[in-house]
Design a protein around this nucleic acid. Sequence first.
DNA 1: ATCGGGGCATAACCTGGGGTTATGAGCGAA
DNA 2: TTCGCTCATAACCCCAGGTTATGCCCCGAT
Lengths: 308, 308
Amino acid sequence: MSEEGARAFGGAGNLAHRVPDLGALELLLAVARLGSLGAAAREVGITQPAASSRIRSMERQLGVALVDRSPRGSRLTDAGALVTDWARRIVEAAEAFDAGAQALRDRRDSRLRVAASMTIAEYLLPGWLLALRAERPDTAVSLLAGNSAAVAQRLLSGEADLGFVEGVDVPHGLDSAVIAHDHLIVVTAPGHAWARRRRPLAASELASTPLILREKGSGTRQVLDAALGGLARPLIELSSTTAVKAAVVSGAGPAVLSELAVREELAMRRLVRVPVEGVALARDLRAVWPTGHRPTGPARGLLSLTRG
Amino acid sequence: MSEEGARAFGGAGNLAHRVPDLGALELLLAVARLGSLGAAAREVGITQPAASSRIRSMERQLGVALVDRSPRGSRLTDAGALVTDWARRIVEAAEAFDAGAQALRDRRDSRLRVAASMTIAEYLLPGWLLALRAERPDTAVSLLAGNSAAVAQRLLSGEADLGFVEGVDVPHGLDSAVIAHDHLIVVTAPGHAWARRRRPLAASELASTPLILREKGSGTRQVLDAALGGLARPLIELSSTTAVKAAVVSGAGPAVLSELAVREELAMRRLVRVPVEGVALARDLRAVWPTGHRPTGPARGLLSLTRG
DNA sequence: ATCGGGGCATAACCTGGGGTTATGAGCGAA
DNA sequence: TTCGCTCATAACCCCAGGTTATGCCCCGAT
């Protein structure tokens, strides 16, 4: 009955009851790759009966046969192949989570100490850390997230080896390299009138429409204000990107957000991008380090990963 | 010790031991949203002590304090906010998995029966199903995945209401609407010589280089052969997109793959896109239905979701 | 033909994580 | 004060998922 309640509210319901846990998904990927329950079991460090039962209960849970068992191996069924591909996305997200969490934990005595602004730490760093781990598995990385000023301070005080910031200005005392470009884009819920526009929105129209905004002082807000000439009209001000997204999705109004932050939502049509013209909403993402101290060693390794 | 083995091999190690399970992550998201352990507990349908202990053990596991508890509520710490954002990606992947799995399970007696080609079923459908569920929570959807011919057959025999195919030709007897464009792109491992090219690759160069390919007959292969004039030279032929990606990542050589299939890998720099010119590597993604039978009801709902 | 070994399943057992109820202890508002 | 909200602790329970021990099946090698 509390099931009903949860269901009725968010629509999310207890995912955990309907989706196999990470261990089971990893096991499934191993089976897919190795073609044998026993071999997969060995790889993930459990016994063959445990693997057998785990897969079986996953099939029960999903209501779909996943593997064809034969006396000389196991292959995925068609449905199994599909499920495995979907599972892989969960596992990849979990790997990124793990890489990030590990960096967050190892605050001290790491070989590479990174300081990054929130947007970069949220959306890009976990992927980079995974890539770095793949190349140099023994590099311990620590992560500190904060705004541009905090990043600069960490670098200058020697508490961090490499920094990442988004924004227009490079803090004093730091050298930088542009590693990517981020575009701020206008988004609305699919139901909003703007969602059906074909003609691009004019800057004046954007400036005169009340928007859902981050609080004054956030990087995103600064860029937007600058682009509009200091004029963005707030409909509401919220303190996190996530809150802004939630408000937009629920139809409260349009917002201007980083492309990075809404990639997922755009892909699954929870948000719609509104074309705009005549406004410079691009900003650089930069790696930064103390003037003169060119990154070396692991810092150089990470830096080179971040450039296409 | 088997831990060591797994570690040495894939580098993956037992993720499940280092990443909190889905239930814990959902709980964390609820805490973030509601600002109280008790409220979050109620939402996910457990008691307050259970939530308290769950969060605490998650903090132990990660080695990071996630929430600031006070007698009048709980707020995320800075690290907690970051972790929560990473967690959200896992949960979203899990939601997509769930939507897909549910559609796979409910083969019969669904209000909307969808047939889709593998690429679309893998990468796009789960997101659409989530969006559909958000709009019309009571629509039961079933999914059948197969190649274009199978999709056509299902539609014509009345076993499916709406189909999705990628490819150049629309099967006979079906009407279609283009819902998106997919680009095949050339990718290599970051270490490959092509990864550093600035000048686009010429078609002739691509045609004369041995590539990692899907087996003959796959949609991707067909488009590539057509674009090159029937010439793609195989270095190896593999039977799944996943296998091709793995081979490319490991440095075996370049491949031509759907943008959809490698979005993640590009984002985290496991693969690099190589610019190409003079080759038409675009293909349409189409919704299809039996000639005359314009989609209505839930099929129309899904169809409208898929168009930007 | 038969034996060995890889593959999977079943059975009986054990453990611990995560759930529950019951209770207590801060803190703020009425 | 006292209520009402927060979170924490304690004692208990259950079962999912692990283990070992075994058996069956099939194939290929002796």
